[in-house]
Design a protein around this nucleic acid. Structure first.
Length: 297
DNA sequence: AATCCGTGGAA
DNA sequence: TTTCCAAGGAT
């Protein structure tokens, strides 16, 4: 792969790095010596999940499963149980699948190549590049929602980023990165941190921003965006809520549970049945015998 | 491309 | 109280 070496705003990276050196949070997965496996676990846990909720689960997870092989040696249900209430429990299942794939295909070693990372379950365009950059110190554009929002504002002058990430977005962010791989990796972490702490979604703290003087959005008068797209529905009453309740019962149970116990979490039988069937379909729940359920083996 | 997939804190 | 949204991925 060939990288662009020109930079449209060569000073941006330096400003962000200087700010990062002073303002960055002390997050354990950024400490030197953090294994690629630990970085991967952090990235998957952080998908759509705030840092403060990830921290204790990440610590416990790695204390119990310090290597992919350690996790792969246990039932997938143990991963789902250890996931706790982080949300989107399919991530736990995929992390277990990824650990298994790493053991089977990579001798238990997290691969450093982007293409190999992309084949792992639960590892998409963002997570693969995050691992390649943060664990292996390679030069890749690491574009999450923070970076997209920061880029939309500082460079494009727009209040909000586009809904989806395109290849052109990746290329555009790549142009912001310095040529040196180690510095590029640190710049990516800094861009994410700035988006997470200063250039936040609802009320950006522009006075604290190192890019204030060159921000295209501020220069344009900080025009309001179109606002968030209306969510089709809230959370209460959805299948997601029912699935969450069902899985919570199984997570907290040390033994298989009867259907009668699961039936108590939701009154409406059709939706309840649909939710349970969905969990089984997803591999998050196993039916050991008719009417008896547990986390998967 | 649009939708689905959890959870809980902050405003 | 309700709404927003948080280091996305799979289909």
């Amino acid at each position: 792969m060939t990288w662009m070496t020109t930079t449209t705003t060569p000073e941006l990276g330096g400003l962000v790095l200087d700010w990062f050196a002073v303002a960055a949070r002390d997050l354990p997965w950024r400490h030197p010596g953090t294994t690629p496996w630990a970085v991967l676990v952090s990235e998957v846990m952080l998908q759509q999940t705030p840092v403060t909720r990830v921290l204790p689960v990440w610590e416990a997870w790695l204390a119990r499963w310090p290597t992919p092989a350690a996790l792969a040696a246990e039932p997938a249900g143990e991963a789902v149980r250890a996931w706790g209430r982080l949300g989107y429990p399919r991530r736990a299942l995929r992390l277990h699948q990824a650990a298994t794939a790493v053991v089977e295909r990579h001798d238990g070693v997290i691969p450093a190549e982007l293409d190999a990372l992309l084949t792992l379950p639960g590892v998409g365009a963002y997570t693969a590049r995050a691992v390649a950059a943060f664990a292996f110190r390679q030069r890749h554009p690491v574009v999450d929602v923070n970076v997209r929002r920061l880029y939309a504002r500082a460079v494009e002058g727009r209040a909000d980023p586009p809904a989806t990430v395109s290849r052109r977005d990746l290329a555009a962010v790549a142009e912001l990165l310095p040529a040196d791989a180690e510095t590029a990796a640190m710049t990516s972490a800094a861009l994410m941190e700035l988006g997470a702490l200063v250039c936040v979604a609802r009320t950006p703290r522009c006075p604290a921003c190192p890019l204030l003087g060159q921000c295209a959005w501020v220069a344009a008068g900080s025009p309001a965006g179109t606002g968030p797209a209306r969510r089709p529905q809230g959370y209460a009453g959805t299948d997601r809520q029912v699935r969450g309740r069902l899985l919570a019962v199984l997570r907290d149970a040390e033994h298989p549970v009867d259907r009668m116990l699961l039936d108590q979490v939701w009154d409406e039988p059709v939706q309840r049945g649909r939710a349970l069937a969905g969990l089984i379909e997803d591999g998050l729940v196993a039916e050991l015998s008719p009417g008896v359920y547990a986390l998967p083996a």
